[in-house]
């Protein structure tokens, strides 16, 4: 397992880097609009009505955007969590933490693919 992860490190890093990119570039705006402004009613009437939101999300670009917005940050978070745990506890628990983190990321990737497909 350890060696498999070591071999896949370049891919994981690429996903991790991609997650940073998405997280830094897109996430703040999405969180602000969708999770803060919309529930507080700061947006114009109908801007995020179900019909419009679904229409935006269900077109191919929307699906891709949402998939990326879910998957890459999760891979980023998983990898970063692994390193954070190393910082706190040293390498000794990495044999458990790393597989757990990446397994979770794989699962989330799968669920996200299904969820986006069902839109």
């Amino acid at each position: 397992m350890k060696h498999l992860i070591a071999r896949l490190e370049p891919v994981i890093w690429a996903l991790f880097g991609g997650g940073f990119f998405v997280g830094c570039l897109l996430m703040p705006a999405f969180i602000f609009m969708l999770c803060i402004a919309a529930p507080l009613g700061w947006l114009p009437e109908g801007a995020l009505s179900y019909e419009r939101a679904h229409a935006l999300a269900a077109n191919p670009i929307g699906r891709l955007a949402l998939f990326v917005l879910i998957v890459l940050p999760f891979w980023n978070g998983a990898n970063h969590l692994r390193h954070f745990v190393i910082d706190l506890r040293g390498i000794r628990s990495d044999g458990v933490v790393a597989p757990a983190c990446y397994a979770a990321a794989l699962v989330v990737t799968g669920i996200a693919a299904v969820a986006v497909g069902k839109l």
Partner: peptide, 25 residues
């Protein structure tokens, strides 16, 4: 490093958003 928690949780939150969109109005 601790900010990774936000990456994980917000990612799951967006999964909920997609799920809700798929489930209907």
């Amino acid at each position: 490093g601790a900010c990774c928690v936000f990456f994980l949780l917000s990612s799951l939150l967006f999964l909920r958003v997609v799920d809700a969109l798929a489930a209907g109005p």
